[in-house]
């Protein structure tokens, strides 16, 4: 264990973990849009910025992204100093200029007292803040169907050649993880569309309810050692089957 001080309180943190994890465990609310436990920290949104110092640093202080800074013995962390709040406000102000219509950004900025950006709003803005969560989760899932394309002002998240991505299986992980709900998809229970690619949904043989896409099921069967008939029924039916089996076992137990 590592001893650190967060906002004046002495706390213990696990060796190797990042500051953000220790801060959140203390129920201190600091924003972070590009962070998710499922993927490696990335430090793109800069919102989790905190002030750090140590007694032996002679008053020297530094501002770091807490999602990327590993805990250190004797570290003194302050999450809401005037400078930190000012930094966070500036970042939110910039986000508000690049994504002025995002409800998530607007809400977060309002919490810090910003209702309008002091910069010029970006023309043809999108709600995408380029946090990279979608590409990181897509890599982690093993598909790498989408990636950052271009650079600077023209940078965007897109499939290769901006065509419907051949490697996408329609799992929707990117859409679910997107912090600003920018990634759109349609799903009518029969067919699903995301990134311009259409997918057919499998149906549970027992309940008739849609489950996952054919491509996703095929991938899981091939790469995750899941039995081939697993996706013939949905989770609910699996649970029902299991409950019946458990009931039988209990019955046998009683009879024996």
């Amino acid at each position: 264990m590592v001893n650190i001080t967060i906002n004046g309180k002495l706390v213990q943190a696990y060796e190797g973990e990042m500051l953000l994890a220790a801060i959140r465990r203390e129920n201190i609310d600091i924003p972070a849009l590009c962070h998710h436990e499922a993927v490696e920290p990335y430090g793109a949104c800069r919102l989790c910025m905190v002030e750090i110092t140590k007694n032996e640093w002679d008053g020297w202080k530094n501002h770091v992204t807490s999602c990327l800074y590993p805990v250190e013995e004797g570290l003194i962390v302050n999450t809401h100093t005037p400078t930190v709040i000012e930094l966070r406000k500036t970042i939110l102000d910039l986000f508000l200029a690049s994504s002025p219509h995002s409800t998530v950004i607007k809400k977060l900025a309002a919490e810090y007292g910003i209702t309008r950006t002091s910069y010029e709003e970006v023309p043809d803005s999108t709600d995408c803040i380029l946090c990279g969560l979608c590409t990181r989760i897509c890599d982690k899932m093993g598909f790498s169907a989408i990636s950052a394309v271009g650079r600077g002002h023209g940078k965007e998240i897109a499939p290769p050649l901006k065509e419907p991505p051949p490697d996408c299986v329609g799992c929707l992980s990117c859409a679910y993880i997107c912090p600003t709900h920018y990634i759109q998809f349609t799903d009518n229970g029969k067919e699903r569309t995301i990134w311009g690619k259409k997918f057919k949904l499998l149906r549970c043989e027992k309940t008739g309810l849609p489950t996952i896409t054919e491509e996703f099921a095929a991938y899981l069967i091939k790469h995750r050692e899941i039995p081939e008939d697993y996706f013939k029924i949905n989770d609910l039916s699996h649970r029902r089957e299991l409950a019946l089996k458990m009931g039988q076992i209990t019955q046998w137990g009683r009879e024996a």
Binding site: D139, S144, G150, P159
Partner: peptide, 12 residues
């Protein structure tokens, strides 16, 4: 290497 990564580098 995934095609998406090649395209990402090529456009960067």
């Amino acid at each position: 290497v995934p095609m998406s990564k090649v395209y990402s580098v090529a456009t960067f």
